[in-house]
């Protein structure tokens, strides 16, 4: 075996590591570029605001946008308060005991359950057992359970970043523990909690597998009236138009992809920049 000079071997290895990093970064940029390039021409006001026509081969994707929006809003309304409360419990109240360890393990496992299994669970419990049917509420409940571990983890991080001394100062003045959390800890953790929530919204707007059997349908001729309606959604629509319908015009597929991707990426960017901004402008 040839023994390389350490300096040279360092140079070689660094180049290799750099190339690996490029391999990790370039694909995503290529994907974004590819979709923007192919999809930009199909985006128009009409595409965004009208109903599909002609077996979805023409017209717009309005019902899919509205559908995704309604599911995501319902899901976050359900999951955010529960997740924040759970984070408050873990960060502010929980003692270091067996119960806490079990909760943490449960959170890790909830986060690891495959999304399609959430779909099965949602079908079994919300659609069938609770007889909610294939509906916005069934899908939103499914997604909210799936998103719970993410919300808990980010909210817990945000709470944990509030210095312990603030809690002591407040408690030492005779203020109760809950009041301390409500008036000192939560306001200071809020930016972190909100950026976490936005990231979650971004993630669940792109999820397909959990909504396959709980809310999404192939085609509905009108917009939803209540949370018990079925809806079209952007990711499911993309799946349908790209794999299930032969001779689909390319512009519809790329247009849908671009809308979905931009929605998700915009929210992610807002969250990432928001987090950076709040870190810089932290009051302590």
């Amino acid at each position: 075996m040839i023994k390389l000079n350490p300096k040279l071997s360092q140079k070689l290895s660094y180049t290799l590591l750099f190339m690996a990093t490029m391999l990790a970064i370039i694909p995503v940029l290529v994907i974004i570029f590819f979709i923007v390039k192919n999809g930009a021409s199909s985006i128009s006001w009409e595409f965004l605001t009208s109903m599909p026509r002609n077996g979805m081969r023409a017209g717009g994707i309005l019902p899919a946008i509205v559908g995704t929006f309604s599911i995501v809003v319902c899901a976050i309304i359900i999951t955010l308060p529960i997740g924040v409360c759970a984070a408050i419990y873990l960060n502010e109240y929980a003692k270091d005991n067996l119960l806490t360890r079990i909760i943490k393990l449960a959170i890790v496992n909830l986060a690891g359950v495959p999304s399609v299994v959430y779909g099965l669970f949602g079908l079994g419990i919300f659609v069938m057992f609770l007889k909610l049917g294939v509906s916005i509420i069934a899908g939103a409940l499914t997604l909210s359970i799936m998103e719970l571990p993410v919300i808990i983890t980010t909210a817990k991080g945000a709470l944990n970043s509030v210095p312990q001394s603030f809690r002591e100062a407040s408690l030492s003045l005779g203020v109760t523990r809950w009041q301390t959390i409500r008036y000192v800890v939560l306001p200071n953790a809020l930016p972190g909690i909100l950026t976490g929530a936005i990231l979650s919204i971004a993630r669940i707007s792109g999820e397909t597998a959990p909504i396959l059997f709980t809310v999404a349908v192939f085609y509905v001729p009108n917009l939803p009236n209540s949370i018990f309606d079925q809806v079209m959604t952007l990711p499911y629509h993309l799946y349908i138009v790209s794999t299930q319908i032969p001779n689909m015009p390319k512009n519809v597929i790329y247009g849908t992809t671009l809308v979905l991707m931009m929605m998700v990426l915009t929210m992610s960017f807002v969250a990432i920049f928001g987090r950076a901004y709040f870190r810089k402008h932290r009051k302590w």
Partner: peptide, 30 residues
Amino acid sequence: IAPKGVRDILKSLVELMAAIPSVVIGFVGM
């Protein structure tokens, strides 16, 4: 190894991949 200034940018770019919905990745792969 990366200079401190670009660390966060690199990390955000890598994490960008995780933000893209899997159905989009499926379509692009297809």
